[in-house]
Design a protein around this nucleic acid. Structure first.
Lengths: 226, 226
DNA sequence: TTCGTCATGTAATGGGTTACATGATTAC
DNA sequence: GTAATCATGTAACCCATTACATGACGAA
């Protein structure tokens, strides 16, 4: 039981929607496509796959030819290919279009964003705007807290604080551009928001809640390319 | 056992170094001073305090007047004031000046940075430079991975990737300014690096690994001010 | 034949959160 | 007298990682 994470589950469904895969490959894709902000290990992936299967969202397909008797208790480790079921697809799309409060939090948002191509512009707009107002809330709290404590903090703490707020502000600007872009075009990229992109640095900022603990991608690099 | 986190332990020692505090107040300070990138709940704080006491780094002092008999098994919940011991101080300074590989990771770095005022410039320089090269490593990996996968990724995933890299680049620029600043002056702030600070946005970027899960500061706001 | 990497899994552990339980003190 | 907030703690859970165990397959 349990082994579900929300993010991981979501990303697995999203990746399998594109094409069936081994757990092994899945993990690599997870750590490149989404690896900007999040990494996963087998210790969480495999158990997660099991529960997804149990829920009927995935089915396991043997990767070995059917002629192989595959005596389950002797050696013969299976190569399992996971494929999204119709229910899984449905579930994923439901998750993707959900715009509850969670959808605007750091990692949830980033994961959703990575699969934006699979939703409608309406949903995209709602998520982007939700994220933006979430960040604005955050900013207000930070500002208030800073105002209250400013004189008691030393220079470095203050600098950290300032820098943190600035990062949030940049993300807000980034969101503004994306929103404008959505408003104007079909896909993002190309439309307006091209305004201040190249000249100095005013254009974009950070999404990425970055990875959890610390580690660099535990990845051994390489992704699918043989 | 276990209930030690590294970050939490470190921050607790650092805050108590300034002045003795209740656990309650400690948590608030934790979530304002360091709250930009990290929040903690009582469920982790109190057990952590216990182990710090067990290690001899803190001592508990009764906050109630000594006349109170304080029968330990009847009601009479203690108000415990934690004070850093000499060993605790020593330990904290040792941790602070440690420049092992961990020191350059997101949250470790941010926590260290928040207490930079308590170290020598030498240590600060080493940590800042270590952090920078850590990020440059990261960038290189991201670039390589992006080059390998670019054409297989859709626009949104790509944008996420791009945006992520940009955030890291910005932090590198920020570090550069801090390093220059250290090189030139006593404290940071004031020295050079004033170059591109106000005019557009070129100056700074993001440190903050931001908070773990998602939640806004679970804080009920307010920090010490009554 | 040995090394790397493909491939799947489990057990122990880590480091946190939430919800709960309890009660004192202050402000209205 | 009652609500908020101060104050301390524990138990149950969550979601991940690490280390381990196992083994196939290809290339040097």
């Amino acid at each position: 039981m349990s082994r579900r994470s929300g993010i991981l589950e979501f990303a697995v469904l999203g990746l399998l929607r594109e094409s069936p895969m081994h757990g092994y490959e899945l993990r690599k894709r997870l750590n490149t496509s989404l690896g900007v902000f999040r990494a996963f290990s087998y210790g969480s992936l495999y158990p997660c796959l099991k529960t997804l299967v149990a829920n009927g969202w995935l089915i396991e397909e043997s990767g070995t030819a059917s002629t192989e008797a595959m005596t389950p208790l002797s050696g013969r480790r299976a190569k399992i290919v996971y494929r999204l079921t119709a229910e899984g697809k449905e579930h994923f799309e439901e998750l993707l279009s959900q715009t509850g409060p969670d959808a605007y939090e750091d990692e949830h948002f980033a994961a959703r964003f990575a699969f934006f191509g699979q939703t409608s512009r309406d949903v995209r707009m709602r998520v982007l705007e939700g994220r933006r107002s979430r960040l604005e809330e955050r900013l207000e709290k930070m500002r208030a807290s800073l105002a209250r404590t400013r004189e008691r903090l030393d220079d470095y703490t203050l600098e950290l604080q300032r820098h943190g707020m600035e990062s949030v502000e940049r993300e807000v600007r980034w969101l503004n551009e994306l929103i404008e872009s959505e408003r104007a075009g079909r896909d993002q990229r190309s439309g307006p928001a091209s305004s201040a992109q190249q000249n100095s640095t005013s254009g974009e900022s950070d999404v990425l809640p970055r990875r959890r603990g610390d580690n660099p991608p535990p990845d051994t690099s390489d992704d699918t390319a043989k």
